[in-house]
């Protein structure tokens, strides 16, 4: 690659200075009932959510979701002709999910090209959404779901799932059910629903905390089916079970908000004529 010699290039790898601040100054983990983001919510409350549909006029359907500092936008295109024709199963449609982070979304600047982590999240998103979409109604075609995380504060996958299912519904893609996502952070014996970035940070002081981990779950609320489940960290099976249960409850708390958002979008347009 030609190099512009007039320009002084920085080192290949650079770090944000904020990484080296002592952890104590940032640390404000939930003590008692109050959460780190200084809101009034308790450990088992989700962040207040703002959601809207139909912002992107170019796309078939779109949605925007905001939970605390996490901001996600999603567009749905299609159904359109499949690009790849090597699929043997032409009877049902193909769902394609793509999840990306804006370079400025996280604390550390990301690259524009999709990294391994984003590919993994895209796969997680796809597997969470697929059970909810009536793909057999779209033979020979492809539905594209593009999620862009504008700002990330805490695990983004759960909100991405919710946002994507809103966008799919806005696009008029037939679905068996809405898909809602929720994350819970388990530390020791405490559970924090919908954690922020500082809450999922491992304690870097070298103290190893037993039984710590995060669980992300996607739920189809009417069918009471779990369409996606991912966890990391080290947890006992009992805590895992409790975390899964907490996630399911979190999803049910989320449902009225999402329902309301969708109905509001439908209501904006004139009802069909009676005939």
């Amino acid at each position: 690659m030609p190099v512009d010699r007039r320009r002084i290039r920085g080192p290949d790898e650079s770090q944000s200075p904020y990484h080296f601040i002592s952890k104590e100054s940032q640390k404000c983990l939930a003590s008692g009932d109050r959460r780190s983001d200084d809101s009034q919510r308790g450990p088992l409350d989700i962040r207040p959510i703002f959601a809207r549909c139909g912002l992107n006029s170019q796309a078939k359907g779109s949605a925007y979701i905001e939970a605390g500092n996490t901001k996600i936008i999603c567009s749905v295109y299609g159904p359109r002709e499949t690009e790849r024709k090597d699929e043997t199963d032409m009877k049902s449609g193909r769902l394609v999910a793509d999840m990306r982070f804006a370079p400025f979304a996280c604390h550390k600047r990301g690259a524009w090209v999709q990294g391994n982590e984003e590919k993994d999240l895209s796969l997680g998103l796809l597997e969470s959404l697929r059970p909810g979409v009536c793909l057999h109604k779209y033979p020979r075609s492809q539905i594209d779901v593009c999620v862009m995380v504008l700002e990330s504060d805490g695990p983004a996958l759960s909100h991405a799932v919710t946002c994507a299912s809103l966008a799919l519904a806005d696009a008029g893609i037939e679905m068996y059910d809405m898909v809602l996502g929720c994350t819970v952070r388990h530390t020791g014996t405490t559970q924090l629903l919908d954690p922020t970035f500082s809450e999922v940070q491992d304690d870097q002081d070298g103290v190893f905390v037993e039984n710590q981990g995060s669980v992300t779950l996607s739920l189809m609320p009417n069918m009471n089916q779990v369409s996606g489940l991912q966890s990391d960290g080290v947890m006992e099976q009992e805590s895992l079970k409790a975390a899964v249960q907490a996630c399911i409850e979190g999803c049910y708390k989320l449902y009225p908000v999402i329902q309301h958002t969708l109905l509001k979008t439908v209501r904006k347009n004139a009802p069909p004529s009676e005939n």
């Binding site: 009536c134 519904a169 806005d170 008029g172 037939e174 679905m175 068996y176 059910d177 009417n222 069918m223 969708l262 109905l263 979008t265 439908v266 009802p271 069909p272």
Partner: peptide, 19 residues
Amino acid sequence: TGTYLRHGYIFASLAGYVL
């Protein structure tokens, strides 16, 4: 249109008006 069948009940598969 816009509905599906499950366990003997009709469910909506779209967001919209019920006719």
